[in-house]
């Protein structure tokens, strides 16, 4: 059976995935294609909103082209004519298990990691936890999202090798963090801790505290003032933001819909 994925710009090329012949547009990321096909590929450092990074190594596949066979991450592998991808060879399984075991040994108590490990057939890691690093597995999603997507660049990788970590500059309160929470949303392990206290958003992990704005309907603090400011800045004079929390806005919307329904 030949499945065909729609092409928009690039020409279609023939490739083989797990023995299945398909045509895919050239240069697409292999991981995206695999996931679309319903092939289960584990990954911790990939997010469709940012460019591939290739850090966690969980998405490895065995690629073959001509006489060359090699193990490669699929997130940053581009589809080319004649590429043959296998996702469940013994070496792929072996590699994924070891990557998982090493990642899990960094943060053995994280449930999401335990589940993924169990799926891959990895039990208790053979390596002890090495040093106090919280739940961070250095996937870099927070750094990339903050830099490329949000444009705040509030955090970055610091140090190298085994001393690598993610922090704000000098570990101090960030001046450029807007409190958008994107880093918290993309973190696969729940490493980034935050809470609201006395009308302030505390992103504990980044040592950053941001004043919040109260919802003008219910009075509950609902967003960081800086975020509102930054979004307003991007909208320019064209749009204005209502200082209403999402809960109240939903209620207002329901109310309006209900009224409209009664009028009909």
């Amino acid at each position: 059976m030949i499945a065909v994925f729609e092409s928009k710009k690039m020409p279609l090329v023939k490739t083989v995935v797990n023995g299945k012949h398909i045509e895919v547009e050239r240069d697409r990321w292999a991981l995206d294609v695999l996931l679309e096909m319903g092939v289960a590929v584990p990954t911790l450092c990939h997010h469709p909103a940012v460019e591939p990074y290739g850090a966690c190594r969980l998405c490895v596949v065995e690629a073959r082209k001509g006489k060359w066979t090699w193990l490669t991450t699929s997130c940053d592998l581009q589809i080319r004519e004649g590429l043959n991808i296998e996702t469940d060879t013994p070496s792929v399984i072996r590699s994924r298990r070891m990557s998982m075991e090493l990642i899990l040994s960094r943060a053995p108590h994280v449930e999401s990691l335990q589940r993924l490990a169990a799926d891959l057939g990895v039990g208790r890691p053979r390596f002890g936890p090495h040093y106090d690093i919280g739940k961070c597995i250095l996937c870099g999603l927070c750094v990339r999202v903050c830099d490329r997507l949000i444009g705040a660049s509030a955090i970055s990788f610091v140090g190298r090798g085994r001393r690598r970590s993610v922090t704000t500059p000098f570990g101090a309160a960030s001046e450029s963090c807007t409190g958008c929470g994107a880093c918290i949303a993309v973190c696969p392990t729940g490493h980034i801790r935050s809470f609201v206290e006395e009308s302030a958003l505390n992103i504990e992990t980044w040592n950053t505290r941001l004043e919040m704005i109260d919802c003008k309907v219910c009075g509950t603090p609902f967003t960081a003032a800086k975020l509102l400011e930054s979004v307003q800045g991007r909208l320019g004079k064209g749009g204005s933001l209502e200082r209403v929390c999402s809960k109240c806005r939903r209620l207002q919307m329901c109310k309006r819909l209900g009224e409209a329904f009664h009028q009909v």
């Binding site: 509030a154 990788f157 610091v158 190298r160 500059p169």
Partner: peptide, 12 residues
């Protein structure tokens, strides 16, 4: 440039 980049390079 962001201070985070300078800090990152300075510690790398």
């Amino acid at each position: 440039i962001p201070l985070s980049r300078v800090h990152s390079v300075a510690t790398f």
